[in-house]
């Protein structure tokens, strides 16, 4: 607890935030999916975003690397403002890794090729070096022996760990996780969460959309609760979960707990 607090206070410095969303609005047609989102995330901070489905949490983190475009407001990532400028977009995507719900590994490439493709072509890393780096990360997610296989030959949990290694091979400053365990069988959820905990311990800036409250308690510096496109409540996990201030969060927590 005290260790977490010191860590937490260590990120409250005057350094500019790693990610800053200010007055962000987004519509899908007539549907207002993000309503005036304001959120600053410091370097090294671990944020868990939760909320009922359709609350806009995935859309929000997908706006951070511009897989979705926001229509109003300002998003600044790593000191660069997201705009239509392709150069700045490339620069941001190089520094932001993303892990998807459905893994999205490239099925026609081996595990090793999945991991080395972007370092070689985006970071212009020599092939040998990229392969060594990829093996290092595959070892860290504990599947180096699968390097020569194709994604289709791996289990869901293994695929998701490869997806994490693939993102890490770009040496990103920020990692986004979009419901990384939602498509997994229960017995595989733990191996992926363990990998993420391990990553959190290295001090990576992480934003994670997830319903895994145990994970949130264990690693999150802050939990953001969203509902109907708005940020309803934010706070440290223990305070937020044990003492919800709004009815909506109370309702959500009771549903989550009933489900478990």
């Amino acid at each position: 607890m005290s260790a977490a607090e010191t860590l937490h206070s260590s990120v409250q410095t005057n350094a500019p935030p790693a990610i800053s969303l200010a007055g962000v609005n987004k519509w899908f047609g007539a549907l207002h999916v993000l309503r005036d989102i304001n959120l600053d995330i410091a370097l090294g901070e671990r944020v868990v975003v939760c909320g009922p489905s359709g609350s806009g949490k995935s859309t929000m983190i997908r706006c951070i690397n511009r897989l979705e475009e926001h229509q109003q407001g300002k998003i600044i990532v790593d000191g660069i403002e997201l705009s239509d400028d392709l150069k700045s977009l490339d620069a941001i995507r190089r520094e932001v890794g993303m892990v998807f719900q459905s893994f999205n590994l490239f099925p026609h490439l081996t595990i090793l090729e999945n991991c080395t493709l972007a370092p070689i072509w985006v970071r212009k890393m020599p092939k040998k070096e990229a392969e060594a780096l990829a093996m290092e990360y595959l070892e860290r997610v504990r599947i180096p022996e699968q390097a020569a296989k194709y994604p289709g030959q791996l289990s869901g949990g293994q695929q998701q760990r490869v997806a994490i290694a693939r993102a890490l091979c770009m040496k990103p400053k920020i990692m986004l996780f979009d419901e990384p365990t939602s498509a997994l069988d229960p017995e595989m959820i733990k191996e992926v969460l363990d990998t993420m905990v391990m990553l959190a311990e290295t001090g990576m800036t992480m934003i994670c959309v997830t319903h895994e409250m145990g994970f949130a308690r264990q690693v999150a510096d802050r939990v953001v609760f969203m509902d109907r496109g708005e940020i309803v409540e934010t706070g440290e996990p223990t305070t937020l979960f044990e003492n919800p201030q709004t009815e909506r969060l109370q309702l959500f927590l009771s549903q989550i707990l009933r489900g478990h």
Partner: peptide, 9 residues
């Protein structure tokens, strides 16, 4: 999306 998120052109 995965290709874009990795920064590929």
């Amino acid at each position: 999306e995965a290709a874009e998120a990795l920064g590929l052109s």
